[in-house]
Design a protein around this nucleic acid. Sequence first.
RNA 1: GCCGAUGUAGCUCAGGGGUAGAGCGUUUCCUUGGUAAGGAAGAGGUCAGGGGUUCAAUUCCCCUCAUUGGCUCCA
Length: 641
Amino acid sequence: MIKITLPDGSVREYDSGVTGMQVATSISEGLARVALSIKVNGEVWDLSRSITTDSEVAILTWNDDEGKSTFWHSSAHLMAEALEELYPGVKLGIGPSIDTGFYYDVDFGDREFSSDEFPNIEKKMIELAREKNAYVRKDISKQDAVDYFTEKGDQYKLDLLKDLEDGTITFYTQGNFTDLCRGPHIPNTGSIKALKLMNVAGAYWRGDVTSKQLTRIYGVSFPKQKELNHYLEILEEAKKRDHRKLGKEMDLFAFSETVGMGLPLWLPKGTILRERLTDFMKSAQIKAGYLPVITPNIGSKALYETSGHWAKYGEDSFQPIRTPNEGEEYLLKPMNCPHHCEIFKSRPKSYRDLPVRLAEFGTVYRYEQSGELHGLTRVRGFTQDDAHIFCTEDQVKEEFIKVIDLVLYVFRALGFEEYTAQISLRDPENKEKYIGDDEAWEKSEKAIVVACEEKGMNTVTELGEAAFYGPKLDFMVKDALGRSWQLGTIQVDYNLPKRFELEYVGADNEKHTPVMIHRAPFGSLERFIAVLIEHCGGNFPLWLAPEQVAVLPISEKHAEYADKVFAALQDAGITGFVDHRSEKTGRKIRDAEIAKVPFMLIVGEQEMESNSVAVRRHGEGDLGTKGLEEFVKYFKEASAV
RNA sequence: GCCGAUGUAGCUCAGGGGUAGAGCGUUUCCUUGGUAAGGAAGAGGUCAGGGGUUCAAUUCCCCUCAUUGGCUCCA
């Protein structure tokens, strides 16, 4: 007998060799019906595998992320089976599950493949799913595996096999399809009830630019048709909220081929929004003890040679510009930190001066690959809400925690309630990718870990994600549709201060090197605004809306009064417009609603007589009549941050 | 940068080997109206750019550019 501990802590006894499915069935028939895989001592297994030792287990269903990935991974196999039937001779790369769905990388040889063929493949997949074929696991020797794929002529699987050790290799078979696979899989294809192929793209074999590009087919699948429909609805909603679409519709920003790709033009309304955000950040930073600075948009190449940016990114950057006579080389600044280091150096510092917190909305230019540009989220010129904190080693933790507080304050103020924090550390296997010695790195990494612990933050740690000069804490927020976006970042840096020979005089009258903290709560304004637009679907918080109020006179007779009302609003710092068109009130209301203007003030005969406005709130409707002053007061309360 | 798709009026899109259409917007006129579209008339396009095939190309083919879905990259 073995002891099986369930997630609720209860312990049950089973015969050794019991399968996950038997455990599930013993708990309840219902659970067994929806069980997809089982977690055994932290490892996800097939439900058909025998458990032979005392174990902690959890039955995984569609409600578990790991259950979903099992389901999608099995769906990838199903797609591969369909592809082999429909396109004999097709060669298969890898086919994993991803955050939402799965893909398979395939080599169609000389055949052209287009998404027009999706319906056929989907049909075949559903047909195969209905056969309810079991996914059968089989241990296989390396030699047998190599023989199998040699005969099949699949060089990609053979390539994968090279890196696998004999004795750890497994095959999975469902129906007529056998694949090299670690597993696990769902019991049979029957639970895949609804699926859709999403798109097709090129993908390098093993992510290597120099190797062959395969065709990657993305799909998603569900145990119920209803869930597929729901998923498609969310995609529709995301399309509606796409910041590129809303940015155009709402006249926030534009791009021009003539200006250049990836170089956003901020239109008046977008500029108002953006300036409100920077004003908000500026006042938060003043309260937090930051000092404003401004630095030029170019800097001598030597500056970036010192920082290490030129060596690391020079080749992939906009190339230097030269002075016409002397031929001196300057770079469009890709980072603000070197400039800030020079500001720190502009006057000797005492430990009493620290921490020094220098803040700048610094515009930087980076040569992003053309295929990588995307709306406002990936551009070639953007503005960071950048700041650098120079402090003593003793102050690092406290300063770091203050920055975390600031970042979280900002997120909350803008309606991002959910976030995750990622600690990005150096890849210990590839130290040559980074500058600085081990000691500096260890200190930096420790500072971040300790600060996060002290704040009780929920974090995930990723190796190899650090910046080349130091580890980072990155903030990922979840938007209204549940999508994750990387925004703010905080970085601890022992390296640049050394490279720039920064120093301060300590209490011991000796010279010391300060520590630097890089931080940007928004990250880039462009990216942040893109995320904000999609988060609120263009319905900005009142204090950010570029046009807060539309004054709608009922007829020409009320035009003058409307102007008077608008002037009073402007005096109170409220933005908006008067709709003087000779349209009916219904039409003016409709247009203001579509333009997502938060408040509509309808003014006619009655309002004129009583110096009042009829208030309508976007998306809510008529709020009744208020005196003009009363409305201003009401607005102020409603728009407080 | 690489693989695929797309590019027609300001916007959203239809069309198709014989030099173009709709809706919305815009302009003018009529209308002066109370909580989501009042009416009429007009303007607006070298069909992304270049080359080729053809009697004829916006339509078919090739190249370039841009946009876009991914890959790779992201200080």
